[in-house]
Amino acid sequence: MTQYTIDKSLDARGWCCPMPSVKTALALEGMADGQVIEVITDDPVSKRDLPVWAEATGNTLLAVEETDSTIKIYLRKGEAQA
């Protein structure tokens, strides 16, 4: 179901607000536009906050997958896509 390659995976499990978005921001700094990051979190607030964060920072939300207590959020750096 994932039709994009994951360039970086960020395991933010165990961290709660505001660290998932802070860590995502820091991780994206070292990435190029168009690259995809997978953020793994167990913080339920991140499911709502990270998409908002992506929109506010001009990054693209690709998908949110939830299994049991783990949430995986896929973001593409930058807007739209190549």
């Binding site: 607000c17 505001p18 978005s21 802070v22 995502t24 921001a25 820091l26 964060w53 506010a56 920072t57 001009g58």
Partner: peptide, 11 residues
């Protein structure tokens, strides 16, 4: 600091 780091993470 929660607000400050969140805001900074949003650019």
């Amino acid at each position: 600091f929660v607000i400050a780091t969140s805001a900074a993470s949003m650019g």
